[in-house]
Structures are given as C-alpha cells and as structure tokens.
Amino acid sequence: MSNARHDAATDGSTDTGTATDTGTDVDTGTDADDDTDGHTATGRQHGTTTTGETDERIRAEWTDYEFAGDVALSVEDLDVYYGDEQALRGVSLDVPAESVTALIGPSGCGKSTFLRCLNRMNDRISSARVEGSVELDGEEIYQDAADLVALRKRVGMVFQSPNPFPKSIRDNVSYGPRKHGDVDTGLLSRLLGRDDEETEAELVERCLRNAALWDEVNDRLDDNALGLSGGQQQRLCIARCLAVDPDVILMDEPASALDPIATAKIEDLIEDLAEEYTVVVVTHNMQQAARISDQTAVFLTGGRLVEYDDTDKIFENPESQRVEDYVTGKFG
C-alpha cells in the first residue's frame, strides 16, 4: 500500500506540469477515503505513510474557527482538479479581515492551489477545474458574471519569486493604476495639460513607503527594476500590488527566495500591512508562520484542510496528531 501511495504522489506532481508555480504541485494520496472509513479500518493497513504521517480521521470541528471581526473571504467546499488529479478536497474556511492568515503544510498539499483560487489565478491554467464557492465580502467570485479585472484589483497577489517588469521602478509601481485608467500620463493627456504626473508621484511614493522600500530607491526611481536586489524586487512587487489598492493581498511564499535579512524585512512588512489589508500568506517556514500570522490553516497530504485556528493554538496545542507531528517537525 505504501508503494501505491508513493506512486500516486509522483504522478500528481508531474501531471500538473502546466502549473507555472511549483507550489501548485498536487499530491493526491490513495488514502483519500480515510475520513469516511475511519482510521480503525485503514489505519491498521497503513500504520504510517511513507512520509511518516500517522493516519487519522479529520474532524470537522478542527477547522471550525470562531472569530469576532468581519469576514473578508469565505470559502465553502472548494474542490480543485488538475485534469484527473484532485488537488483540493472540500476545503472550507473563513478569512477574517485585516489580519494575517498563514497557510502551512508540506509540499504538494494544495496550499498554493488554494491561494490561487482566491483571485481566480487558476483560470490561467487550462487543465485546472474549480468547484465550490468563494465569496469576497459576500459576493460569489465563481459565477459567470464575475469580473476578473475587478476581482484581481481587489485581491492582489505577490508571487514566490520576485517578478518585476523590465521597466523603471516608477513604471512598475504605477503600472496597475495606469492600465486601469486611474493614472493617465499618456502623450495625449500630457499635450492637453491634464496628465496626472503629480498623482502618480504621490502614489509611487506612498506605495514604496508602505512597502518599506522608499528610502532605498527614492533617488533612482527611473532605474530599471531588474537592477534591484532580490529582496528589494520582492518589496517592489508588494508595492506594485498595493498600488491598485486591493482589499486582500495573497502572498505565495514571498520570502522563500530571499536571504534572512530580506526575509525579516518582508515579515515586518506583512505585519504592518495587516493593519489595513487582509493578508493571506502561504509559507513553508513554520517559524515564519508562527511569527507573523494571527491564524493558521494547516493543509496536509491529499489536498485537505486539517486544522484551522489561532496561530498560538496550532503551534502550542493542536487538536490533530498529524498537525502536531508536522509543526514539531516529525515529518514534512
């Protein structure tokens, strides 16, 4: 049995080769049925999985998380398939507004896939199919009438590796507003004397300040962004994302390609951002999740949400044995 599971795991990660992001690799175990069979039936056969997870039944109350504030995103019964492989199985969780929600879990558990569902970036992968419901401030985003442009303006995203455009720092920040027509510095409006150069300058400064980058780059805004260091590039990407004034910011392992100092800066930034924005951050680094997040959702093998609660509770006294094993480093 353990062999079969291993094969399925390998297949899962190759079949989704179209995914642009390694985080979207899927791992659907053949032990998918164990929550219906219960661990008494399958547990005897499995014992532990190849990765060292103990089998156990996921209980619904582990993912029930009560909080006081507003709900920014409400996810109900989300299933995602890449071709025939199922990457997410019945995930439901509510993301509180103006807080940091961390998604943790081993590679291929579906946490990046989940994140990409929140602004429908999975639509860009032709083999991906999403079922279930995601509501942003009470509005269903998976409906035919959904406006992807408006949705992605409100739900911004920062990727794993910094990906600034090969343009100047200023142009990178003002790119979004410019394309949305909020800032107009085109030739025609410049000729007509009604360009928004000042608005643009203010916007660029505000976003770069919010992204804690202003002091490092304010004297070279016209330089190409590719000349910045990796950490600066990632903060520029955050500034670019802030410029379209989103409500929610999704971050897909934003510090995984950075050195410790740059990582610390990004972490400080995430905590600051949570005062105004709702931040959902995927991370591999459990210490990072413990440091920066208010609540943590743990995804484990098979694309399931296992436990979702206050970060302190998850790291100090989790309900699930598997989650405890994971956060204490016994597997994963």
Partner: peptide
C-alpha cells in the same frame, strides 16, 4: 518572454490585450 510577467500583470487585474501591449511586446 517569461510567463511570470504575464502572471504578474494578470494578478494586477490588467486585461490580456493590455498585458500584451505593455509587457509582452516591449520585452
């Protein structure tokens, strides 16, 4: 032209044609 540029532009809510015009074509 790397797909990351297209992804980054799409994640900012920029339409496909504008992405092509302002990111893909210049690159």
């Amino acid at each position: 032209v790397p797909d990351e540029y297209r992804d980054a532009s799409a994640a900012l809510g920029v339409s496909k044609w504008q992405t092509v015009r302002s990111v893909v074509l210049p690159a």
